[in-house]
Structure formats: structure tokens, C-alpha cells
């Protein structure tokens, strides 16, 4: 980069010039005859304009995307006689919410959903990190085969194997039990795949040091691998919790007694029983949605990290 250009531009910061130097490596066809900085300045103003346009479009689209969720909240808070009034100015009430929480057994549904989602999440994190540790860090014959077999189960989602899975769980005597709700959905190769990917990048030296300290494989897993995998375990915890809190098909298939109804079944029941009491149905939906939105907002950072990794690792 000619120093001449740099001196012409008092406004160019060190960082910018550093970047300009880096960009030197990138392919470039135009000769640097026009002072680069002047062109850069012209870009800066047009860039600011395009940023503003982008921001405006993005915010408008975001508000449109958001609209149904706002309508869910409005619908839940409206008195029954104003459910369909078009404006936003009608009066609000907590009647629907209190009715859902007292007359319909929503607290029971919420508790069942919490038990199932938390149990599945904890068991899945433990089992998947164990399997991933073995697949990423331990050598044994047939490792590639075992990995491929496990990963190939990612093809098959619950709706596909629902019927035979139900038959097996029925044979095991788990229909209409908590175990039936929890155990079959723990096993999922996606978690194994992401964790293994993560464990492949842990430096070997850490394990060797632990081995010097007299750790066996169990000790290495507990004292080296698990502490290092906190961020990915957090992302997976958010993913697993959301998936299980929101799951509908499996609880629908495997439970009969109303005592085992999870929240999604509760809403579906509400939809069937009070088909035109929209305020009540929206209130139930809001109660079901709030925990997922809270978990999402709390775990957003980890969740987004894991999504981005999935995308870029392809």
C-alpha cells in the first residue's frame, strides 16, 4: 500500500488502515489510481444511507413477524364479548388467565410438562455427552461404524416411527406412565453429533495431564470433558427443553389418563371442549408460551451459538 495515500487521509484510523492492508491479500482488479481514501469516503455516506434503509425494512418485517404473537397476548387479555373487536382500544381483563389457571387444571399440565422436559433434558445431556466422549476421544475398533449407525438414526423422526415405537413401548408396559413420556424421547443422535464435534477440538494435553494425576477414563470425563463442555451443554439444554416442552405428538400417542396430560395436550383439549371460547384458548396458549419465551431469552446466546455452528459446519 503506497504511503502517499495514507498521508492524504487524516481521518483514516489505524484500524481502517490495518484492514486496508489485509484487504491487499484479497483479489483486486482495479488499479489504485484514484486515491482509495476518497472513494472510501464516498462509500461511507452511501453506506450509511443503505444501513438506514436496511434497518427500516428489517424493523417493519420484524413487526409483521411479531404481530401474531402480539395478537395472542391481546386475545388472552380481552373480555369474552370483545374477542373479535378489531381495534386495540377495547378493555382488558385477567379473567381468562385466572379461569385457565383455576378451573382448567393448567397447573397440573404445567407441572407434568416441567417434569417431562427437565427429566428428558438432564438424561439426554448425560447420555449424549458420555457417548460423544467415547466417539471423539477413545479409540476402539468399529468406532466409525458405531458413529455412522448412530448418526443414521437422525434420518428418522418421531412421526415416521410412531406406530412401531408405540408398539414397543406398549410391550414394555410403559403406556400411560411418566416413564413412557420420558424414556423413549431421550435418545436422539443430533445431540451426540454436536457434542462429538465439540469434543474433537479439545486439546489432548488436558487428558494426558489428568491421566498423569491418576484419573481413569471416568475421571477424565468428569473432571476434564464435562467442565469444558459447559457452553455446548447449555445450548443443548435450551434446545432439548424447548423441544420437549413443545412436543405434542408423543404425549398424544402414549397417554390416556388426564392426570398425565402435558401442557400442549391441555391446549388441544381446551380447543376441543371450548371451541369458540377463544379468550380461554388464547390464555392457555399464552401460559404455555411464556416459559418457552423466557427460556429463549435467557439462553439466546448459547442457542444462537449452537445454531450458527450447525450452519457453518454444514
Amino acid at each position: 500500500m503506497p504511503t502517499q495515500t495514507e498521508t492524504e487521509v487524516p481521518s483514516m484510523t489505524q484500524a481502517e488502515s490495518a484492514q486496508a492492508q489485509i484487504s491487499h491479500h484479497a483479489p483486486r482488479t482495479l488499479a489504485a489510481s484514484v486515491p482509495r481514501a476518497r472513494r472510501r469516503a464516498r462509500f461511507a455516506s452511501s453506506e450509511r444511507r443503505s444501513t438506514i434503509i436496511r434497518a427500516v425494512i428489517a424493523w417493519i418485517l420484524a413487526l409483521i413477524t411479531m404481530f401474531p404473537i402480539i395478537w395472542l397476548i391481546i386475545g388472552a387479555l380481552r373480555p369474552a364479548d370483545q374477542t373479535f373487536s378489531p381495534g386495540l382500544s377495547s378493555s382488558f381483563t385477567f379473567d381468562n388467565l385466572s379461569q385457565v389457571l383455576t378451573q382448567v387444571p393448567f397447573p397440573l399440565y404445567l407441572m407434568n410438562s416441567a417434569i417431562v422436559s427437565i427429566a428428558v433434558t438432564l438424561a439426554a445431556l448425560l447420555f449424549h455427552s458420555m457417548a460423544a466422549y467415547a466417539l471423539a476421544r477413545l479409540r476402539f475398533t468399529g468406532r466409525g461404524t458405531v458413529f455412522l449407525l448412530m448418526i443414521s438414526t437422525m434420518l428418522v423422526s418421531l412421526p415416521v416411527i410412531l406406530v412401531p415405537l408405540f408398539m414397543i413401548v406398549k410391550q414394555l408396559g410403559l403406556v400411560d406412565t411418566y416413564a413412557g413420556l420420558i424414556v423413549p424421547v431421550i435418545f436422539n443422535a443430533f445431540g451426540i453429533f454436536l457434542l462429538r464435534q465439540y469434543y474433537l477440538n479439545i486439546p489432548k494435553e488436558l487428558e494426558e495431564a489428568a491421566e498423569l494425576d491418576g484419573c481413569g477414563y471416568g475421571g477424565i470425563y468428569l473432571h476434564v470433558i464435562l467442565p469444558l463442555s459447559k457452553p455446548i451443554l447449555a445450548s443443548l439444554a435450551v434446545l432439548f427443553f424447548l423441544a420437549n416442552w413443545n412436543s405434542f405428538l408423543w404425549p398424544l400417542t402414549i397417554t390416556q389418563s388426564p392426570n398425565l396430560d402435558v401442557i400442549q395436550l391441555g391446549i388441544s383439549t381446551l380447543q376441543g371442549q371450548y371451541s369458540s371460547a377463544w379468550g380461554l384458548i388464547m390464555a392457555g396458549s399464552l401460559v404455555a408460551a411464556v416459559p418457552t419465551i423466557i427460556v429463549f431469552l435467557l439462553g439466546q446466546r448459547w442457542l444462537v451459538d449452537s445454531l450458527k455452528t450447525t450452519g457453518s459446519k454444514g
Binding site: 413443545n246 405434542f248 400442549q264 380447543q271 384458548i281 396458549s285 404455555a288 408460551a289 418457552t292
Partner: peptide, 10 residues
């Protein structure tokens, strides 16, 4: 992050 049940009824 919403369940498809909530989305459906909404």
C-alpha cells in the same frame, strides 16, 4: 420457540 399447538390455535 412457540409450540406448533400454540401456533395452530393462534
Amino acid at each position: 420457540v412457540l409450540s406448533l399447538v400454540v401456533i395452530g390455535v393462534l
